[in-house]
């Protein structure tokens, strides 16, 4: 990845899809990541690989302010530093053991992550909030084309923005944004329309 790509915010999840005290898998162009919230809701992200034996940290668990690996229970704090190694309860883990914290921010109800700290906060789209994320087996360009040539579109009668991130050459992570305060019935219609858009896009590719 180019240096300027590394400092770009990438949409990784919908904010409300990450409950307090849980961890979820996501991805950057550099590879898989784990995004998690402390028990009190503070958001963090790091590489999805435990420095000990490489287990994916998104399979782990959160207690209080730390993320633990499911394999041997190594515990990482908010700065990514290893705080505790259960097999050696008396040992102070060396400072060098760190699971690689990543810059993370929230805007429009979307969780954005970057490989390296970008200079600015993620751009807000005024008046819109995240509805739902979906993985499309298609490129961002194919999605834009199916949506009528642009990622600013309309879903089931509601104005919508599609935020996209290419995960692999054939898979794109999509978050649909709808106007803040959209009622439940319109949200349902928009989610159904997003499914339809995926069908159209995927059958075209």
């Amino acid at each position: 990845m180019q240096a300027d790509e590394r400092t770009q915010w990438v949409p990784a999840a919908v904010s409300t899809d990450i409950l307090d005290g849980t961890v979820v898998p996501a991805a950057l162009p550099t590879g898989p990541i784990a995004v998690w919230r402390t028990a009190s809701g503070e958001l963090h992200a790091n590489g999805d690989r435990c420095p000990h034996r490489g287990m994916r940290l998104s399979h782990g668990f959160v207690r209080g302010n730390s993320l633990s690996c499911i394999y041997h229970g190594w515990r990482y704090g908010r700065d990514g530093g290893c705080e505790h190694i259960p097999a050696h309860p008396g040992l102070e883990p060396p400072k060098s053991i760190n699971c690689g914290p990543l810059p993370v921010a929230e805007a429009n109800g979307v969780v954005w992550v970057a490989a390296q700290a970008p200079e600015e906060a993620p751009a807000e789209i005024e008046g819109f909030e995240a509805l739902k994320s979906m993985l499309f087996c298609a490129t961002p360009a194919a999605i834009a084309e199916a949506a009528g040539g642009a990622l600013k579109t309309e879903l089931g009668g509601t104005p919508a923005h599609l935020v996209t991130a290419e995960r692999t050459p054939s898979e794109t992570f999509v978050v649909a944004l709808v106007p803040t305060g959209t009622d439940v019935a319109s949200k349902l219609a928009a989610a159904t329309a997003l499914e339809a858009l995926r069908r159209v896009t995927e059958s075209a590719t």
Binding site: G31, P32, D48, R49, P51, H52, R53, G54, M55, R56, H59, I70, Y71, H72, I85, A87, H88, L91, I97
Partner: peptide
């Protein structure tokens, strides 16, 4: 379910890549 989720899939023989302890 652990073994299928280790990264990288191959066993690293370069000692710098993973972090062993006394255990």
């Amino acid at each position: 379910s652990i073994l299928e989720n280790q990264i990288p899939k191959k066993l690293p023989l370069d000692p710098a890549l993973e972090t062993p302890t006394r255990a």
